[in-house]
Design a protein around this nucleic acid. Structure first.
Lengths: 344, 344
DNA sequence: TTGAAAGCGATACCAT
DNA sequence: ATGGTATCGCTTTCAA
């Protein structure tokens, strides 16, 4: 045990000597190559166990040209997003998948344009990371272009705004929104307003599209005055709701749970009640949705799974290339609670 | 511009040739060493600019034995914590400080014991990271011990539970809690209950200590039946509040905003009102505190600054050693809103 | 101030 | 199956 003290500067060579084999053999054992005699392998393994030897990551990456590192990139527009529980959950899924695959996860948050200029050249070059997971944003499109000229494989979290042949993982935002609105219609609501997510993101666009589709299908007219665009914050939801309430809607589809909290607050302050006066359906199903007053009926998306799939997808691309682009879209699920007025 | 295409495999040697100098000189320029003639430096800089050359991180760390990487470690007990906005904010502060110092931030979330066993040997050896930021937990103490035998510098986020000579950054939890409770006392509350944070964390212990101190100082008796220990979740706060309400308290000090949300929910369901029947003061001042109904009076702690200071502290330790241990404690601030019943 | 050369600690190809 | 060796791209003495 105590011989682990100076373990720090133990090299392959040392292990090889102790085991009475060559560096090559030790390397093979470590990398689980087949062509090693069981006997040699056991001897090496024993020495490694005893000494607590670990290969030096830098030496490894230099020689193999792989870093076993992937980066999670959050472009500028989304800092605030990081205080959004959605993001933490995604990161969690990503991190746990990384653990599973023995990859290290590095975080790149672009706060300022300066950050981006400074970091981009580093991460878009092979060496630092083997691949990147990038949160989709409108602003991120420029980033995608630069990256697609680079050697670094990447996968996008959420459909990229401009159609291009990138690999991505997303949920079916449009279908989810459709379900949400359809549900309200089925409950007899007629004037269904929407607090949309930013329309320069695919999340925003797609959920709005689903809303519109549901109206059409129910032969309800689209009324521009029942549309408001929030910024995904609680405050945003609050402000939008105040504005929309003047139009006397009887229901509200809110494109995110967080904004829905704000909307509930606005409705409460206005003296109206949910779901009696106004039915509300949100999107995300974060843990807080169940704890809102009243509990939010919302569209559940598998955020953690999204994270895991992003990692799996990225590793697949790293190992096998991204031709054709790899795309995965998860379905959503309506979770009925108190805010919509379903009698359940 | 287009010559940046094969920039990927450009080496120091290439740059040296293009600039008509030796590798050594280029290296000196890159590392901002003094002993380079202005002329040579300019030539090299020009070539770097033109070619978009970036040093290979692995080669660099291998040669210099520094990775320019620091790790943020979240021990087991705290996964749930990651969906706590507190954590996201801390990570944000840490990440932005890393950007500033040109360090890469890697995330190590220990989900399972297996994760820990698998990752620890790697991160506790020099090479992968230059240093670690570790979230304090009771469970983390074992981790600290292992690490203090290793070569890897680390700093703790939050005071370690068992007193030892580690470097750490924390807020003055005890003083904050004291202020909170004192405030309630000054508003005339007599039966002040507490929803404490887990008592196997210093956060929990210190805030509870502050609560007790405030009672003592006001000559109010400590009543065990007015004490409940929550798990930092909304649900935890809810359950604790239900339990405490049976004891007819006239005020509640809740050790975290998130738990306070749960407490408000419980109080609401019980038909009591805040602040009339029950004054509530919480701890954290996350953005959501202002949006609760009623808005939470709470103790503000500078979470982002905590993150920044953790990085600065760690870098200081990396560069100058940790003797004596480096300790920074931030003060807190009472933010008065609606939940406490102050007439403001 | 500059350059030559010896590592840093692994991988992987090539013989054997 | 095993070992020798060139190589990865940089930092860092050491001489000049």
């Amino acid at each position: 045990m105590d011989n682990q003290v100076d373990t720090a500067k133990l090299t392959l060579e040392d292990v090889a000597q102790l085991a009475g084999v060559s560096r090559s053999t030790v390397s093979r054992v470590i990398n689980r190559r087949a062509n090693v005699s069981e006997e040699a392998r056991q001897r090496v393994l024993a020495v490694i166990e005893e000494t607590g030897y670990r290969p030096h990551p830098a030496a490894r990456s230099l020689a193999s040209q792989r870093s076993s590192n992937i980066g999670l990139v959050i472009p500028r527009r989304f800092h605030t997003f990081f205080s959004d529980p959605y993001f933490a959950r995604l990161a969690e899924g990503i991190a746990s998948a990384c653990n599973q695959h023995s990859y290290i996860l590095s975080l790149f948050l672009f706060y300022s344009e300066e950050d981006e200029h400074k970091l981009l050249p580093h991460i878009s070059r092979p060496g630092l990371v083997d691949g990147l997971i990038i949160q989709s944003t409108y602003a991120a499109d420029a980033l995608f272009k630069k990256l697609s000229h680079s050697q670094v494989p990447f996968i996008v979290a959420g459909r990229p705004v401009q159609v291009s042949n990138f690999s991505y993982v997303d949920v079916d935002n449009s279908a989810g929104a459709f379900t949400a609105v359809q549900h309200l219609v089925q409950l007899g609501r007629q004037r269904i307003a929407i607090i949309a997510a930013p329309q320069d993101t695919t999340v925003g666009l797609d959920r709005f599209a689903g809303y519109q589709r549901a109206l059409e299908e129910s032969r309800l007219p689209f009324d521009q005055s029942l549309f408001a665009e929030g910024d995904l914050s609680e405050d945003g939801g609050y402000c939008c709701a105040l504005q929309l309430l003047r139009q006397k809607p009887d229901a509200l589809f809110v494109a995110s749970d967080i904004m829905a909290l704000g909307a509930l607050r606005a409705i409460r302050e206005t003296g109206l009640s949910v779901p009696e006066d106004i039915g509300v359906v949100a999107f995300d199903d974060l843990p807080l949705a169940a704890h809102a007053t009243p509990p939010l009926t919302t569209i559940r998306q598998p955020i953690r799974r999204l994270g895991i799939e992003l990692v799996n997808g990225l590793l697949d691309i790293i190992n096998n290339g991204s031709q054709p682009p790899r795309r995965v879209i998860f379905g959503t699920e309506l979770v009925i609670r108190g805010s919509c007025g379903a009698r359940s």
